[in-house]
Simulated assay, not measured.
Amino acid sequence: MELRRPTAEDKDRVLEMIAEFAAADSYMHGGMGATWKIADSYEDWLDMVQQQEKGRRVPAGWVPSIQFLSFDKEGQVLGFLALRPVLNEKTIIEGGHIGYSIRPSKRRQGLAKEQLALGLIEARTAGLDRVLITCDEANEGSRRTILAAGGVYENTIDRSERYWIDLD
């Protein structure tokens, strides 16, 4: 698996994955859901995520983030991952430093664990030594992914479970 920032060349593959999420009625976690809802087009979304790294065009209540896509060896987009180096009142409860999702047809194959492991490397690169990751209390798959990455449960606030991972 490769984790990298999205480009204009990824458009068709990303749109195909977004269509899969929509057909499955599955929310796109990892920063994608909030930004895609307000984007006018793929190009607008791409500009938005590039601007968000600089602290501009950030959706209300969110924080600057770095958007990544994960790819398999054949170049298929597998999922989204957002790295938020700084937290605010909203993201400290729901969202945390890293949000992620795997496309519906590729779930239950260990890909979320692999994607999160790559996201933790990016978090270290961004200077973080500890990250908060949250999941809905009903999301057993995400909970298992977080625990497998070394997540330590802190508490649950408003149905959002909060886990910390030390990056030593």
Rank of each mutant, 00 (worst) to 15 (best):
N139Q: 10
A148T: 14
E20G: 01
Q115K: 01
L83T: 00
G61M: 11
E20R: 13
L69T: 06
M28K: 04
Y42V: 02
D129H: 15
G55E: 08
I157A: 08
C135H: 09
A19Q: 14
G150V: 07
P64F: 12
F21C: 05
R108K: 14
I146V: 13
Q76D: 14
P85C: 11
G110F: 04
K11S: 04
M48Y: 01
K113S: 14
M32K: 05
L69E: 08
E140T: 15
G31A: 07
D44S: 05
P59Y: 07
K54C: 01
W164C: 06
R13K: 15
R108N: 14
A82E: 07
R103Q: 10
R107P: 06
T156F: 12
C135G: 11
R5D: 03
A112Y: 02
L81S: 06
R56F: 12
L83H: 09
L120R: 04
I146N: 09
A82W: 05
G61V: 14
T156M: 10
M1D: 08
V77A: 04
I133S: 07
D12T: 12
K11L: 11
T125G: 03
L83Y: 05
T125P: 00
H29A: 13
A19L: 08
Q115T: 14
R143S: 09
V131K: 03
N155P: 00
K54G: 00
N88K: 11
G33I: 06
D72I: 05
L78T: 06
L120C: 09
S65Y: 04
R5V: 12
R84D: 01
R5T: 11
L3Q: 01
A138L: 10
Q50Y: 10
S142Q: 09
F80D: 09
T156Y: 08
A112H: 01
D72H: 01
L111W: 02
A8P: 00
V49D: 01
Y153F: 15
N139K: 10
L83D: 04
W62Q: 11
W36Y: 13
D129N: 15
A123G: 09
M17Q: 14
Q50N: 15
D158E: 14
L118Y: 03
R13F: 01
S142D: 11
T35I: 13
Q109R: 12
R144I: 03
I157N: 01
G95K: 01
R84M: 12
E94N: 05
T134C: 07
Q76S: 09
P59F: 07
E74P: 03
T7Y: 10
T91Y: 10
S101T: 15
H29W: 13
I121C: 08
G95P: 03
V49I: 12
L128R: 12
E20P: 07
A23Y: 12
E16C: 00
D166S: 15
I133D: 05
Y42H: 07
F80V: 10
S105P: 03
M1Q: 04
Y100G: 00
G75Q: 02
I146Q: 07
R107E: 08
